[in-house]
Amino acid sequence: MRDGRNVIRRRRAILAGLIVTSVLLLTAYFGEGSDGGVLHSISSGVQTALSPIEEGVSRVFKPVRDFTSWVGDTITATGQNDELRAEVGSLREQLAASEVAARDAEQLREIAKLDRESGYPVDSNPVTARVILQPPTVWYSTIQIDKGESAGVEVDQPVVTAEGLAGKVTATTGSTATVTLITDASSAVSAQIMPKGLRGIVKPQVGDPDDLLVEFIEKDATIEEGDTVVTSGSSSSRFESLFPRGIPIGEVTDVDPAEQDLYQRVHIEPNADLRKIDFVRVLTAEPADEVGV
């Protein structure tokens, strides 16, 4: 009987010990801040040590991922076909108008002697990287890539896909980097809604990677479905941006004018499919030769 009670006590003590240890680790991790400390160093060490295995596992599972993705895409594509045909017609008209506008803008820029500000920064060097680790839950949208400090990748550098903005680098090791996606709860990107140039902050809706929100858009501003949202590249304190100007983020899908008193909330669908990223490009600061995968 006494043995039984002792075992119960020991069992509960172990459980309590594990919980207390977890809480202490969490406290210590937050105490270290983002600059790093013992736990951050251990985490970097584990990521560096396991990155070759992660890359191998990721490559092994790629055919399975591609197959399931192809099945899903095929089912979805059937329904999207008519919709896309209509969109192509509309885009052709927009393309013609855009080409005229671009030519006018180029001529005006030359007249005014303005430097080009949109697009990727002139001195940036895009480094292509493979995604080796995906987010385990919807609460944290981070990925790990197989390029790190040795390839010129640094914290806060923008990360893009072929379709548009993906996120920014938030941690690096020698051979890997952690990228926080724009769908992460902590993400906020200053943006402009084109063609009117309205400025706001793009924030995610946790759990729905296909729906981002642009906040702080004045209530009386007119926004239409299909308007393009790009990074603003602003340096003002309120809308300060780490991202260069003009990287496409997404397209307006809906506007909620009555949700807030002073501002309206705009829903956008990101251009990049952030659930199925295999490769990204990091816009590194230092000019260097293109680093391949």
Binding site: S22, V23, L26, Y29, F30, S43, V46
Partner: peptide, 9 residues
């Protein structure tokens, strides 16, 4: 948590 670089614990 160590592998994904998240809050440890």
């Amino acid at each position: 948590d160590l592998m994904v670089g998240r809050e440890v614990g």
